[in-house]
Design a binder for these strands. Sequence first.
RNA 1: GCGCUCGUAGCUCAGCUGGAUAGAGCACUAGACUACGAAUCUAGGGGUCGGGAGUUCGAAUCUUCCCGAGCGCGCCA
Length: 572
Amino acid sequence: MNIFTYFETQFAAIILQLGEAGQIKKELDISRVVFELPRDQEHGDLATNAAMVLAKPAAMKPRDLAVLFSEELKTIDGVVDVEIAGPGFINLRINPLLWAREISEVLTAAHDYGRNNAGQGANVNIEYVSANPTGPLHAAHARGAVIGDALAGLMAFSGWNVTKEYYVNDAGGQVDILARSAYLRYCEALGDDIEIEAGLYPGEYLKDVGSKLAAKYGDKYHKRPEEEWLSTFRLFAVSEILVGIKEDLKALGIQMDRFASERELVENGAVQKAVDKLKADGHVYMGVLEPPKGKEPEDWEPREQLLFRASNFGDDTDRPLQKSNGSWTYFASDVSYHFNKLERTKGQLIDIFGVDHGGYVKRMKAAVEAMSGQKDMLDIRLCQLVNLMENGKPVKMSKRAGNFVTVRDVIEAVGADVIRFIMLTRRNDQTLDFDYAKVTEHSRDNPVFYVQYAHARACSVLRQSDGVPSEVDLSVLKDPAELAVIKLLSSWPKMVESAARAHEAHRIAFFLVDLASSFHSLWNAGRDNPDLRFMIDDNPVVTAARLQLVKATSLVIATGLNVLSIKALDEM
RNA sequence: GCGCUCGUAGCUCAGCUGGAUAGAGCACUAGACUACGAAUCUAGGGGUCGGGAGUUCGAAUCUUCCCGAGCGCGCCA
């Protein structure tokens, strides 16, 4: 059993026992009680907030509770000292062997160390990327892609049943423009001189689509009116673009479970169905919106339209579902899409959006609340921009000219694993500088390298050994530098679980940097003091224990990287 | 004008859902290479957590009001 759960279990027994004895109230809620690593070494090996958290429900003073608890905690096997500190913290010092035994936990579970059941098999649907199918993925899409995919990996590792989903916006005006742009390229392929007018997509990538259209249809649609070819070309172009997007995702290590089509929702009446449902529940009405304050559009006219009562669910105003021409707004189809996801998932939804969709969060959460009847069925994580840099200077991009940097370009430049890790070295709502030079640099500055190097070093030791013995005396591991690594290793399961619950995959990346740092420190301690080297020629007992520690470290680093779908390197 | 996100060391950022004297890296200063990989490590200085008020045993974290930055604000997606 993991050391933290061990103490939490023991503590639960103590609460029960004290309750039975009438010394404290019975059935106190101990869900907020935690045993954790104190930041400060002076505070011992483990600390608990139990006395402070339980003071109010127990109607006792924290210090008095702490005294009661500490008497009992002292009797737990392996506890060597208990002290009460500050406002009521209880600090435990424990036999180093208890820590060292954590290594056995790691080695036994191996690549499943840290796997947990926080999700208890609940379904969760994570929607990410969802870039418009009008061109290849560009670099900016990579962040949301990685954040969503890493979160999917993390939650799957933590016992959720995850569906990874991409919403294809193949129904709006954007894809008409795509079709017209493809038509031009089609004409070009048939030998016409073309000029790409403003408002169409100028990208070279459509040449290929044009040639394929020419090969398939010959001159059948050449110089024909738009209504003859538009829907055909739209379908064809979207499908071609999606093939490319799927290839890009695959190159990034991403395999979606489902590509959901907006067009299908509109065509099979799902939008109508979702709106009808809202209507039946009284969340929809015909009304007139106030013009937006401050920046009033030139062509504003008050107009009666179909509105969703978003303001009943925390949004600032009600939101239109229908355009003036009678077609659905993007919001309406997205409402139906979320309704569809709720029905399919029977569990929580997570959307990964770019910051530019920040204004959309309230209404979407409002809609999901209205449809599900529950708050918090939808979590939306916004991801901030990525600044592409080359040696500290911004990489120039002109989307208008169609020469933006694609995901493919970046993968070819630095590799998918580097992208995946770097994208997680900032919280999702912080902007991130992605510098081609820095992310491939072999230095302490580069977290990917730093973590991979730690793994490679550990592997190097293992290669030079005669194998890791299975029966060892772990009590010889008691140097502070060794214990520091072990403590981090044993906090891995806890860390994974809380990161999964918080929907924050970046914590994994930060943990790995910490672990790498701690391991590098231990390594270095062996340089200053030969007694601390992993392999000691005339001391097979110590060597054996340390090889297990090295093995455990490499396992946890590899597992952490694996959760993020990054391959650990055995050699640099 | 309103809303959302953010503001933490000179710089780049963490801070485990309210815990102890706020932590890393870079940079700076002083050290460590007869190497289980020095592509690294050790030590040190450096903070009114944007500002004020509030909530309580306890606030970077929660509430509120200011200041500043980014994003968004009917019939684009």
